[in-house]
Design a binder for these strands. Sequence first.
DNA 1: GCCGGTCGTTGGCATGGCCAACAAGTGGGT
DNA 2: ACCCACTTGTTGGCCATGCCAACGACCGGC
Lengths: 156, 156
Amino acid sequence: MANKWVDCGGMETRGAPRRLRGAATWLLGQTTIHAHRLVSDALGAVDARRYHYSLMAALDEFGEASQADLGRRCGLDRSDVVATVNELADKGFLERRPDPADKRRNIVSITPSGMAHLRHLDRVLGQAQDALLAPLSVAEREELVRMLNAVLEHHG
Amino acid sequence: MANKWVDCGGMETRGAPRRLRGAATWLLGQTTIHAHRLVSDALGAVDARRYHYSLMAALDEFGEASQADLGRRCGLDRSDVVATVNELADKGFLERRPDPADKRRNIVSITPSGMAHLRHLDRVLGQAQDALLAPLSVAEREELVRMLNAVLEHHG
DNA sequence: GCCGGTCGTTGGCATGGCCAACAAGTGGGT
DNA sequence: ACCCACTTGTTGGCCATGCCAACGACCGGC
């Protein structure tokens, strides 16, 4: 859903206090706001959310898994995994079947239709990311990713 | 309030899908989560929030202003400015007086006690930011800030 | 067979960011 | 002088996000 920031070009954060404009934490937050908007709008246009992509990407990469495993992989709470798997299963992108070897677990797997949808989301998100990082060169983007990874690993 | 991520070092997002780990938007989001936690915890320890700092920084830099102006400067909704000014005025950090030249407006100004508090928050936030960016060299931090500013300006 | 721990699931809660509506007030046009 | 569009402060509410607590079912080791 496009909102004020998207519609009319946003507030004049250009005139924000220098203390904020100079603080990396604030810059990160502001940039993430834009990223979230671009991504959410892009995903919303195909009736998807962030969690959808996370789970399906994990299933594609690691193969079928239990819901708890999926949650750990993606950093989602178990309860949120339930809701997200429900949504995706309703659309036919995921399948949920009981694990015969452990009756507590559900084995979640991605369907062919889900794979197609995932690739579609890949393209959609790629465009959103390009839009976000438009002013940065390829080298700069790699540098940015490298630094963010360093920070995350340090706090991992 | 420290929570799970802070307490036990966070989930194993190290094992997150490569599609996520490689996406700048996701990395930004994850990094911002850590930044938010560090900042919120640091501010919470002195009974403050993000909005507090934004408003007081704006008042310090630009001098007294109406609430609507403050909101535009900092990118806050008018209604959120009301609540934040209430909190800060209750603590004696801000003063609100009617504008004689325009009876619709309130003129908000920062008090000496507010200035002292602002400087305290400056130190607290500086530490939080240092903690966040610990693995980056000074040159890298400047590069990061430069790139984020470029992105923000492009979308400004 | 018991017990600590894990699983899926439900329900709820706090926060943040936003929007809508309102009365009071302003300024420009006529 | 009046009207009209607009702004301002304020209240109230909405919804998505990220959590946490508790439950019954179930597992594994002792």
